[in-house]
Amino acid sequence: MSTTGTIADRSWPRARTAVLRDAVGVGVAVGALGLSFGALSVLAGFSVAQTCALSLLMFSGASQFAVVGVLGAGGGALTGAATATLLGVRNSLYGLNLASLLRLRGVRRLVGAHLVLDESSAMATARDDPREARLAFWATGISVFVLWNIATLGGALGAHVLPDPEALGLDVAAPAAFVALLLPRLRGRRLWALAVAAAGLALVMVPLLPAGTPVLVAGLTAIVAAFAARRAGGR
């Protein structure tokens, strides 16, 4: 036992460096997306202050893009907030997996909750050693928070300077980012079917429903159908 302890201690500085390097790398990658979020949000009609508030307070990329997308398309505040909240449901599951690892109490739990993200959860759960995993969670969370917010401010301020953001294809940045986020989740035919059904339903509803609601209605309908299909399938 003492042998493994020594090995673990000796390799700790190296492991710590690796964790911190990864955390900064993830932060930089996410920051680049933050630039396009900042710009798109301002173009959708949000003020610079509102755009920065989204990144500081909501701090969940997909949910933020959803708020901007729904309201930018003319949707209502409640629809925007509901879509953002439902997209945040996955964070609960991350939190569950992290809870036993982080063992947070009191103020630390309230702060830690804000840092529960796709990135921090993925980096933490990828580490086998609990000490490395805890460091990965905090380092990635803080790195992403800092760079995401700086980038958001930069993008929001830059949006006014850019001649024509559509000429740069910035309106495709969000869907492209979502596809990159979505594909690793599509394990198995059933999830592909769900994604295609939800996308198709949303498009059918675009001419029929008030702006902003097709995403919410199609997403929920597809989920209900998936549960019904599973039950009918005898599981």
Binding site: A66, T83, L87, V89, R90, R185, A195, A202, L216, A222
Partner: peptide, 19 residues
Amino acid sequence: SALLPVALLAALVAVQTFA
């Protein structure tokens, strides 16, 4: 919680791309 993000993101991508 596994299905919700898949369905919502797929719907969001479709609307942002084609509407």
